[in-house]
Structures are given as structure tokens and as C-alpha cells.
């Protein structure tokens, strides 16, 4: 299925948001997630089924003022 991951289009073979994070090497990372503009808490990622065309954001701590 096609996803928009952090603004970049990609083909993936995953079912859940948690699986997507694992394939991206971020399974253990300190990140927060949103799908189609809505926050998805960490404890919901395992049950969250992604759909073709979803837009996924994976955010991590960054410098800020």
C-alpha cells in the first residue's frame, strides 16, 4: 500500500502503525505519531491498522526555542 510518511511517498507492506515504526528502525525510539492529522497514542499503535493513502507523521524530540 502507498503511504505518505513524513511527507514522502512510499510503498510499504505493513498492517499496523507499530509495524511501520519497526520497519523504519524506530520501534524502540522516543517518538510520537499522528495519522491523517490526528494524534495516535503509543499504546494504540499496535491496534491501529493503516490504510492505503494514509499520511503518517513520526515526530521526535528536537531543538526548540
Amino acid at each position: 500500500m502507498k503511504l505518505l510518511l513524513n511527507g514522502a511517498s512510499m510503498d510499504v507492506q505493513v498492517g499496523t502503525l507499530e509495524a511501520l515504526l519497526t520497519t523504519q528502525g524506530l520501534g524502540d525510539a522516543k517518538v510520537a505519531t499522528a495519522v491523517n492529522g490526528a494524534f495516535v497514542p503509543a499504546n494504540f499503535r499496535g491496534a491501529y491498522l493503516l490504510s492505503d493513502g494514509d499520511s503518517v507523521e513520526i515526530l521526535a524530540p528536537m531543538q526548540g526555542g
Binding site: 523504519q24 522516543k30 513520526i58 515526530l59 521526535a60 528536537m62 531543538q63 526548540g64
Partner: peptide, 21 residues
Amino acid sequence: TVSLRRESGRDRAGQDFWHLI
């Protein structure tokens, strides 16, 4: 003060910053 930005599994820049702060 800190922020959030997109994270890539390739460089994991946010993880290093997390440990620093």
C-alpha cells in the same frame, strides 16, 4: 524549551537530542 520534528530511522537525530536534554 524543546520541540518536535520529523524523525528518520536513518539518522535518528531526535534520539541523540533526547539523551542530551
